[in-house]
Write a protein that binds this DNA or RNA. Sequence first.
DNA 1: GGATCATATGCTT
DNA 2: AAGCATATGATCC
Length: 157
Amino acid sequence: MLYSLNYSSPIGLIEVTGDENALKQLKFVDSFRGESYQHADILKDAEIWLDRYFSGKDPGTPPPMAPEGTSFQQKVWNELMKLKRGELISYGELARRVNSHARAVGQAVGRNPLPLFIPCHRIVAAHNLGGYTPGIELKKKLLLLESGGDNTLDFTV
DNA sequence: GGATCATATGCTT
DNA sequence: AAGCATATGATCC
């Protein structure tokens, strides 16, 4: 059985889905399709985590996750989850850590099914902001949020 | 600063 | 198995 949580964040509506044991997917939506089911404890944990995240605190350890992907993708995502809040990394640096190539890393990161929990917005390109599948504007807002709002993120993208 | 090529991985024939 | 698309990077000019 899959459960879903509808969450209204400062940067838009979010829909989290998961089963009894782990989160499976997070997506940004324009409007909620159905009702919010929070029968699973894990979705309550997810909601608490998101509350803390958007309030500017350290959200702590995220709920268990079960993203589906290849071993390489899991490797990349696992490396991402080691990043602390507000820490940035470039595609090239991340590629070096997993002994791969920047472009491959970008593709793996882009296929991440659990943004926010897996901080894919903390990845930036070497000379600009990089990309973000749900929308580059969203990525800027997230980085702004993490840095406290009065940062020096003046990317020209 | 723009154009071009090299490179790794995943998806689709 | 081969070709194509990528959320890049380094190297030309």
